[in-house]
């Protein structure tokens, strides 16, 4: 009798292990699909403050390569944010100089990583959202905990949808549409910090 119980328990455990392995594989597969090594596209952003009935909307284009990511807001006002070398640079006019927004910050590297779906398990607890092609990220790193309560990355058709909740429960939804996997020379130049 004991042997039978042991066998059943073992089978349950093995099934459970398979489930975990299956889930991890799904996460990995989805992360792989979400990952943007290189390319360019369009984005729209909606920032919901709890005290506002309507979100703050903006839209523009993005460019990504293995070393940097450019976030170019075109509407309603021009701004360019460049994530490079763990720093965040910003300029508010096309011909203006980039100013360091955040230097040597984990935030710079983490935001850059979120946009490219390069998620480190050191910084985040990763789990799948049931019945949805979404990954839920809970920050583990204290400096990220101070900023974000959670993040979700979803793949909807050809769009990547990133939702970030801050500590005050304000929500930012970013929808990214990848239009090209290749970068033109002009795009590559735009990802370089001008000297």
């Amino acid at each position: 009798m004991n042997k039978v119980i042991t066998l059943i328990l073992m089978m349950l455990l093995l099934n459970c292990g398979n489930a975990i392995a299956q889930q991890s594989a799904d996460e990995l597969r989805l992360l792989e699909q979400l990952r943007i090594e290189q390319g360019s596209g369009e984005f729209s952003q909606q920032k919901y403050f709890k005290f506002l009935s309507l979100p703050i909307r903006s839209s523009g284009v993005f460019k990504v390569n293995p070393n940097a990511a450019l976030w170019h807001t075109q509407q309603p006002v021009f701004s360019q944010v460049l994530f490079a070398d763990d720093n965040i640079y910003r300029r508010l006019a096309l011909n203006g100089p980039y100013q360091v927004l955040v230097q040597n910050s984990e935030l710079g590297s983490v935001l850059g990583a979120i946009f490219k779906a390069e998620i480190s398990t050191n910084d985040w607890s990763i789990s799948m959202v049931e019945k949805q092609p979404c990954i839920k990220l809970i920050p583990k790193n204290p400096s990220l905990i101070a900023i974000f309560s959670r993040v979700s990355l979803c793949l909807k058709q050809q769009q990547r949808v990133i939702t970030l909740w801050d500590k005050q429960d304000n929500k930012t939804i970013i929808t990214m549409t990848l239009l090209a996997n290749q970068l033109s020379q002009q795009d590559v130049d735009a990802l370089e910090l001008p000297h």
């Binding site: 403050f49 703050i56 807001t73 006002v77 701004s79 508010l92 935030l107 900023i147 500590k167 930012t172």
Partner: peptide, 24 residues
């Protein structure tokens, strides 16, 4: 216009806790 551009970039900045904590 320049002032608004600057304010909007702050407002729109992902992860800027200073905005979230003080905008109201």
């Amino acid at each position: 216009e320049a002032l608004f551009r600057y304010q909007f970039s702050l407002l729109n900045q992902v992860g800027n806790q200073a905005v979230a904590l003080s905008v109201q």
